[in-house]
Nucleic acid binder design. Structure first.
Lengths: 340, 340
DNA sequence: CAATTTTTGGCAAACGGTTGCTGAAAGTTT
DNA sequence: AAACTTTCAGCAACCGTTTGCCAAAAATTG
């Protein structure tokens, strides 16, 4: 091949260049490229050939202006620091790429005011948004959903399409597991009070524990970071529980570290169950027994849901929330309860 | 407050709505909002007030059409599966957000053909791009750089602005460390042959090892994943080296796992040094001695570099590559060489 | 107070596409 | 062969901004 795959550094060819070169009108070129049935096969062929030769790429901005379609989806995460989101982002990225959409990654780390404002400014640049762990109120969320197609992850608000990882379902398995190992007093190491998932997990734990004749205890809230695992570990040491279920793996792994520093053996002295099965849960020390969540799959589902919603139009009835099951993955951080 | 922060579900206000409401022309509104000096202070105030009341958000697409500025930057990663990139993405995200840019995250997982094509289609939707571990040839990269502002990470091509994590510098420290522990034969566990960083690391290791009177050995290439760590570990076991420096932490952690399964003790039998210090390197078992790279900082730097390049204009001379130092973080995976 | 300069706001033409409408050409039916 | 239908391509308006140019108004100067 003598000619470069990359043309000289002139400005990109427009639809008008293709029109001039081919002798057809711009409108015909437009239709030839995006509305195949609307134009003679021969004409289309000719136009397509010329477009390719000119290395023509439609300008997404301009297209968005009339069609209203931007070809990109915003993915909002509340804290890009949390590895849980990595799986999610990976999932959304895969699916978006497959559907030829672009992913706009946005970190909303701030107050809910800024979150609403951010989304609002995005409304023009994205065809829809995927919200993970949104801090918006139900009303804010609903108001937003009227203005822009939305899918929420791990958040249930009636009327808003959602993908929900059914960790409570896994909680039952975790409690069965712990109860059968002889644990009679189990602490739930709580995540942020504002977190919807956190509340759900605790409620399920409380209920199921009572059924199993196990005594449930709840800690104060801890930020979802490894660092706060240290404090949580101390709290566990001072408690009388022999096992804990932790809001997420990040805190759990932090606790493991602290336990080792303090000479507390896991699982001989204390059993630990995490939630999510993030990257690292399998190779930490000891490997963490955890509720494996299909994180990537959740990301992919959310995208599919959003995309099919875009096709269906906003007036279509919102689909029911999609529940993704979790399962307990037993590793080395759980064992028989210690004797008193 | 009686009125919602979110207006009713009508379509968003345009500049014309603001114009009509305020009695000024659209052009004046435009100038009032984006070209402060060009308009009377009072008029501006009035317009700003009305714009706010109408909850007006400029349409980025339309703006991009005339101004040529999209307000977003593309970040290309070759494999979003690799946690190394998370740090990077986090860094770019932070800096972009601070500068009020949007991040378009793109996974180029494929052949270099598709990479070039992807970037080309992005040219219209982004003001610039950050390339991490690009598989493009030097020429392709240079051609691309003519058409769109670029910053490369960990890739040096003369004429292309770059941020380079100076791992080779750290390699020296690692070798000093290992040599002083009595290791006399050190294996470099190689990453992908095509990787620029991989080549640099090996060359430095080879050179420095010889200076220190240590015998350097190089393995075949391994894919940068935990899974390939198993094979790499086997290779180490069958070799006569007592220590290894591994292309990256991902492989290294995979090796650690395998060593444990095989009953090989780290660091008693074999010492392992990783590269990058990714999430997890501190809590794996044993915690990994590694070359800590300022990953997030690299992301931030790349963004700053790109942004200042956008301001300076493409004709400004390309800045020299920015070298970011690494340092050895000693944890528990390295120890005295075993006796023969 | 006339002449000149500076401010300030409006008109209209882009930017690069899409799309409703129109009419010519071609094909079909009687 | 006339009447009717379908296919196909072009015209022109429009999407929401920005910006060059112009003129009215205001401020400055002589």
């Amino acid at each position: 091949m003598s000619n470069d795959p990359v043309s000289p550094s002139t400005r990109p060819a427009t639809i008008h260049d293709v029109a001039r070169e081919s002798g057809f009108a711009a409108s015909t070129v437009s239709r030839a490229l995006s509305n195949p049935g609307r134009v003679n096969a021969q004409t289309r062929e000719k136009i397509v050939a010329i477009a390719r030769a000119l290395n023509y790429t439609p300008n997404t901005q301009a297209r968005a202006l009339t069609s209203g379609q931007t070809g990109s989806i915003a993915v909002l995460v509340s804290d890009i620091t949390n590895p849980f989101y990595f799986g999610l982002i990976r999932g959304t990225q895969q699916q978006l790429k497959a559907a030829n959409y672009l992913q706009m990654l946005v970190d909303t780390a701030e107050s809910s005011d800024s979150e609403a404002a951010t989304i609002d400014s995005l409304r023009r640049s994205a065809d829809g948004a995927i919200l993970t762990a949104s801090r918006l109120s139900d009303q804010q969320l609903l108001a937003l959903a009227e203005r822009m197609p939305l899918v929420a992850i791990n958040r249930h608000v009636p009327g808003i399409p959602a993908v929900i990882i059914d960790t409570p379902f896994g909680i039952d398995q975790a409690l069965d597991h712990l109860a059968s190992l002889g644990h009679r007093r189990i602490t739930y190491v709580s995540g942020p009070d504002m977190s919807w998932s956190n509340e759900r997990r605790w409620q399920r734990l409380e209920k199921t524990a009572q059924k199993l004749g196990v005594h449930p205890v709840r800690t104060r809230e801890y930020a979802p970071s490894m660092a706060s695992g240290a404090a949580a570990a101390e709290a566990m040491i001072n408690s009388e529980s022999t096992a804990c279920v932790v809001f997420n793996d990040l805190i759990a792994i932090g606790m493991l570290e602290r336990f080792r520093e303090r000479g507390v053996r896991v699982p001989e002295d204390i059993s630990v169950v995490g939630c999510d099965d993030i990257f690292g849960a399998d190779f930490c020390n000891p490997p963490l027994t955890t509720l494996t969540a299909p994180i990537e799959r959740a990301g992919r589902m959310a995208v599919s849901m959003l995309l099919s919603r875009l096709e269906a139009g906003a007036d279509a009835p919102p689909p029911p929330p999609m529940l993704l099951p979790t399962h307990l993955t037993v590793r080395k951080s759980t064992g028989p309860a210690r004797e008193h």
